[in-house]
């Protein structure tokens, strides 16, 4: 490290930093959101390039793991196996993409909402929030509060929308609440994220008979999602002795770890 850099003991920089902090913290919500969205827009093109690179790198690592399994066979078979493994990865990626797009298309045809396809380009860098960034924003009609889904079910809702990108709070975040119900009995509740990759269905009537394996779908009462979109499956029912309600743990229908393409619901109200 250069001596010049080390030896600067002036108080000017800390003072400027302190002043900067005071100014930034005193900004109104509109201005601070504008700064955040403006800077987000600058980095969006890089994220758009990097995200697929990481996605494919992960697939390559998986492919290498598969190839290692073939060690011990003879050279010719090993070569053939490596080639086939690469082909399988490529084709399975194509198949996955195909299924994903078909799911989205099916949903798009069945949905009364106008929908917009978007790609996930980044995730939240904090453990405190379960959110992702998508590559569509207000320029394409995305608004704060809009619901986001895949062909498999509910993803979350938009909490910030810039011109070319938007931030989506996922269903698994404790701050995300979605009006839901048990599909078979139509018992209403509220799906709340647990911050650990799952969610729970809260405020269920104590009188309701709920069993494991029951499907949970959106109720349509919140206005963000139409009714009937899959939220998840009940894995356990929790009932306190003296509580007013019971709750159920729910395994989300969407695999958030493999989130890549999503649909934004552009119009609320059926």
């Amino acid at each position: 490290m250069s001596a010049e850099f080390r030896s600067n003991r002036s108080l000017a920089v800390p003072a400027a930093v302190a002043l900067g902090l005071v100014v930034l913290l005193s900004l109104s919500a509109t201005v601070s959101t504008g700064i955040r969205e403006g800077l987000g827009e600058i980095f969006l093109p890089v994220q758009q390039v990097l995200h697929p690179v990481f996605f494919r790198a992960g697939a390559v690592v998986t492919g290498i793991g598969r190839v290692i399994d073939a060690v011990g066979r003879n050279f010719e078979l090993e070569e053939e196996n490596a080639f086939l493994a690469r082909e399988v990865i490529r084709l399975s990626e194509v198949e996955k993409e195909n299924l994903q797009l078909r799911d989205l298309l099916d949903f798009q045809q069945a949905s009364p909402y106008r929908t917009l396809g978007a790609r996930v380009v980044g995730r939240d860098i904090r453990h405190w929030y379960q959110a992702v960034t998508i590559d569509k924003g207000t320029r394409r009609g995305v608004r704060v509060g809009a619901g986001v889904v895949t062909g498999r079910g509910v993803v979350g809702r938009v909490i910030e929308a810039g011109a070319g990108s938007a931030r989506v709070l996922l269903l698994i975040d404790p701050n995300c609440r979605v009006g839901s119900m048990i599909r078979s009995s139509r018992v209403p509740g509220v799906a709340v994220g647990d911050g650990e990759g799952g969610c729970s269905l809260e405020y269920l009537s104590r009188q309701a008979q709920i069993g494991e394996g029951e499907r949970v779908v959106t109720s349509g009462l919140s206005g963000t999602f139409p009714s009937g979109i899959p939220v998840g499956t009940v894995t356990a029912v929790e009932s306190e002795e003296h509580g007013l309600y019971q709750s159920a743990r729910v395994a989300p229908a969407v695999e958030f770890e493999k989130l890549y393409r999503v649909l934004v619901l552009l119009e609320n109200g059926e």
Binding site: F5, N8, S10, S32, F43, A131
Partner: peptide, 26 residues
């Protein structure tokens, strides 16, 4: 860094953290 350059770097890092994360700005 032995000088005060760390303060500016920390502020820039904090700004990036707020931009790339949900939650309140600041």
């Amino acid at each position: 860094s032995r000088g005060s350059g760390w303060a500016a770097i920390a502020l820039a890092a904090g700004l990036l953290r707020d931009v790339f994360s949900a939650g309140p700005f600041g």
